[in-house]
């Protein structure tokens, strides 16, 4: 029997009756949610986790075949929800996790109440009639920079134990390894992320959803937010003043306020 809690390094904050599951994006781990956890843990049970291959997850559980599509990750989200027997989940995903949550909610709608998408994109690559923001060459260029920055990576970095994320005295070594992951896994996750096309799934989302669209995000330009709003039933689009791709880190107050206001009215 697979230990899901250990495999995905599942952590629970707060013990409210209502429940949130927060899923990090490509390149990071559950620590990106620290501001949102603080804001919601008094009212909600907040569940965070690391995808297999990221953060403190069990690297041995990485199966290149299973994780060759977003569905492998969506299954893991469902398994986390099932293991903890969570009901009426408010799922908050960042970046690629939005589409992972969307796929999980389409397949297992009984568990989900809302899908909240932070900087989502159903497809990153431009086509004749769709603006995703990037061309294939841009993504290959990103992979090159990633490879150049993996020179110093070694397998011995992986099993460092992450302490309390609120502690200000996180060691330099730990800081340097934040978001560090096995380069082979990162490469595959990057390919799965950036070459996935989930546009045709949007129409099938059976629950209400919120899109948090940043005003200047090269990974998800404004057009993407409008596209999602147009093609997803019961979707609310909120355009943030925040720029960049990580508003939950760069503009946590605005991000939290928008999510709270959406949840109060929906």
């Amino acid at each position: 029997m697979v230990d899901i809690i250990k495999r995905n390094n599942v952590r629970i904050h707060g013990d409210g009756n209502k429940c949130m599951v927060m899923a990090h994006g490509f390149g990071c781990d559950q620590n990106v949610w620290r501001h949102l956890i603080k804001a919601f843990e008094t009212e909600y049970k907040v569940v965070v986790f690391d995808y297999v291959g990221a953060g403190q997850s069990d690297l041995d559980a990485y199966d290149p075949k299973k994780y060759s599509s977003l569905d492998g990750y969506a299954e893991d989200v469902h398994e986390v929800i099932q293991t903890l027997a969570l009901k009426d989940v408010i799922f908050i995903g960042h970046s690629v996790s939005c589409m992972i949550g969307l796929r999980a909610a389409i397949k297992y709608p009984q568990h989900f109440q809302h899908i909240i998408m932070v900087a989502p994109s159903p497809s990153y690559i431009n086509t004749d009639d769709y603006i995703g923001g990037m061309n294939r060459e841009d993504i290959e260029a990103l992979f090159e920079v990633m490879d150049a920055n993996y020179l110093g990576w070694s397998a011995s970095m992986a099993p460092l134990i992450m302490g309390n994320p609120d502690a200000p005295e996180l060691g330099e070594e730990l800081a340097a390894n934040f978001c560090a992951t096995d380069p082979e896994i990162a490469r595959q996750f990057a390919r799965v992320t950036f070459f996935s096309d989930n546009r045709s799934d949007l129409q099938n989302l059976p629950v209400k959803s919120l899109t948090l669209q940043c005003s200047d995000d090269i990974l998800a330009p404004l057009e993407v937010g409008f596209y999602i709003e147009k093609h997803t039933p019961q979707n609310t689009l909120a355009i943030l003043n925040a720029t960049g791709h990580c508003p939950h880190l760069s503009a946590p107050e605005e991000t939290i306020a928008v999510i709270k206001s959406y949840l109060n009215t929906n």
Partner: peptide
């Protein structure tokens, strides 16, 4: 360049914010 821009948004900026 474009690869660097994407890398900065995905990795560098979150790292500065987090650590």
């Amino acid at each position: 360049n474009k690869g660097g821009k994407l890398y900065y948004q995905l990795f560098v900026q979150p790292l500065i914010k987090m650590h």
